[in-house]
Design a protein around this nucleic acid. Structure first.
Lengths: 191, 191
DNA sequence: CGCCCCATGTAAGACGTTACATGATTGA
DNA sequence: TCAATCATGTAACGTCTTACATGGGGCG
């Protein structure tokens, strides 16, 4: 039984702070997570699915004069699934079709899996990005100059985006190093 | 009746070169348009929809020993719809949720709508990007330093990506200027 | 009282995914 | 002949979109 990108986004949010469906809708519509739909027809069924799978649990709040309102929090099982999603090695497919998801996974990484996992994540990302960028350059060469200007520029834009992503990755790794988190080696002497 | 992103991608491809469903599948699976699914369950119904709407027409090829094979080409009505899609002003929503679609629209622009439209497109993009980047910076400020390192870095990555996109846009405008295409001023060239 | 916001949901339909099915042609 | 590839499709299923429905609570 597989979860969707929305499902994981919800897990990640709820793991940072328990929230109601309505809260989540506001977050999606107000912040830069707008890429997810804030429609009730998406959110509420998704939360219900997660609850049915035992990944989140909702408690109905009832202070004195409060409206009915379900606060969802992530279960240990849910946290486990979230970690598995975050810590998957980055694949070429992730880069081609799911770049925003990569960034989201990383955003949740510190809180859900810890800084060591974040560093691991960044190294995995760097390892995937380098050959990907190479293959983009090759594809560009093989197409020659026969394409319209706008098509060529668009392709170049894609390459630049990937290169910028790599630069960011390296900077992020450096940031963790300054904080005292180096890559965990298999032999294990870190910090 | 609205078309999906896949529908427009097909229109754009077929307008460049007539092709069969199978050809399209190969393009999607082999080139960097992999972000679209190459599954027959997506392609063939999508082509059928476009044909039903009169935007493409399929002719069954029959050379001597050829297999049955339907070559689709774009109708004038289809080209009109494609142009309308491409030439829509770039909105904030496009930037937030549909960046790859923006790039795809631009890639088809020269061939489908001409270089003048491409220049117009880039100016519209620039006008949308500037305030968008500002608002990202503001959002970042307002969140303070309370977030985990990875979350902050992820957000910064998003900002960098948008800034790189803007740089690319300016470079692309410069490229067209060097080719002799400046912005068409219907009402004065002030942005 | 009427209106708007909070808060949750459901129903119909469109679309994509996955898997299966079909048949023709080429090459070993 | 047998397998692989070409080429097209369909069926079941899940999810998202759009629109509607419901009801409590604060406020003028």
């Amino acid at each position: 039984m597989q979860r969707t990108s929305l499902g994981y986004a919800l897990l990640g949010l709820l793991q940072e702070n328990p929230a109601s469906g309505y809260d989540v809708r506001k977050i999606f519509s107000a912040t830069s997570m707008k890429s997810y739909s804030d429609s009730p027809g998406a959110i509420y069924p998704a939360l219900a699915r997660l609850e049915k799978q035992g990944l989140v649990r909702g408690k109905i709040e009832q202070g004195s004069g409060l409206r009915r309102r379900q606060l969802f929090h992530v279960t240990p099982k849910g946290l486990g699934e979230l970690k598995k999603w975050i810590c998957r090695p980055i694949t070429r497919d992730d880069l081609v079709a799911r770049q925003p998801e990569i960034v989201l996974r990383f955003a949740f990484c510190d809180k859900a899996a810890g800084p060591a996992a974040s560093v691991e994540f960044l190294h995995s990302l760097r390892s995937a990005l380098a050959p990907y960028i190479d293959s983009l350059h090759q594809e560009m060469e093989s197409m020659g100059k026969l394409m319209p200007t706008s098509a060529r520029l668009a392709f170049e834009g894609g390459i630049r985006g990937a290169e910028g992503f790599l630069t960011w990755t390296n900077d992020a790794i450096a940031t963790y190093e300054k904080l005292g988190f180096a890559k965990q080696s298999t032999k294990g002497s870190a910090s």
